[in-house]
Design a protein around this nucleic acid. Sequence first.
DNA 1: TATTGTTATACTCTATAACTATA
DNA 2: TATAGTTATAGAGTATAACAATA
Lengths: 150, 150
Amino acid sequence: MARPGDGEQTRSEARAWRLLFDFFMRTRPQRDRLLSRLGLTPNDARGLGGLDATEGRTMRSLAEAWDCDASNATFIVDRLESRGLVERRPNPDDRRVRSVVLTAKGVRLKRQLLEGLYAPPEELSRLKPAELEVLSTLLSRLIGQDSSDR
Amino acid sequence: MARPGDGEQTRSEARAWRLLFDFFMRTRPQRDRLLSRLGLTPNDARGLGGLDATEGRTMRSLAEAWDCDASNATFIVDRLESRGLVERRPNPDDRRVRSVVLTAKGVRLKRQLLEGLYAPPEELSRLKPAELEVLSTLLSRLIGQDSSDR
DNA sequence: TATTGTTATACTCTATAACTATA
DNA sequence: TATAGTTATAGAGTATAACAATA
């Protein structure tokens, strides 16, 4: 497993990751404010993230996606439903199953949420376009998609 | 405010930030497993993060650091204390004040926590040392410290 | 009278177990 | 008999308000 020079690679990785971690953590208050402004708990936000207006999701698959218990998924969907953000639809093929979809209001709120989360922190402006390009290329490699994909 | 070419800068920033955000989010399950393995709730972890073995912190300042209510800080410290991770010490100068410090056990657990959080995800190994170096340099700029600091 | 911290209390979040209705 | 989802219930997390001790 270990190769000559491996220790240096490991240290380089650790240093880069630590910087990335610290930078991301520093931007947390910004996200907390966003959620508070939109009136969402962290769970609500994760809930919206896994839903859309066209592809209905079953309660079971939502519980799995949210890594929580089925009864908790019921609770989360109840919350979103009581705010008019999602809708439970019956499934004509299997009457045990509910299909959960975003309402128009839910779609709007999800869009606001994503816009807020993806709004770059002001620190990004410290880098010039060419540097941002390099950064994006390296991060694309980490995500496993080629930079030219977008 | 807007300058010619500003739109391109903004788009470059947005693209880089989005990639960084998505990459970080992808590594979340890893952190969830770490906390579960160490038997810590997210709050416990944040609690440990703000404490050390030498500099005692008052309850008041901890509530502020954790962005929570004073009674909630009491609850969090109670939890950590019941696991033998922190200690409340009286303050000889002002007998109203408690000084909260990590125990030896708390120090060990905090170290394990930080080691886990700072352990680079395997994706980092996709980059070569020279690329990791570039990445670290750019991230250092975002954090606002010069790369040569470390 | 003001401040530090805790306790009493209530509300939200989450999981386990029991239940209903379908299959 | 098994599965999808809900309800009953209990325990943990969090905040507001009232309180005791000290300044």
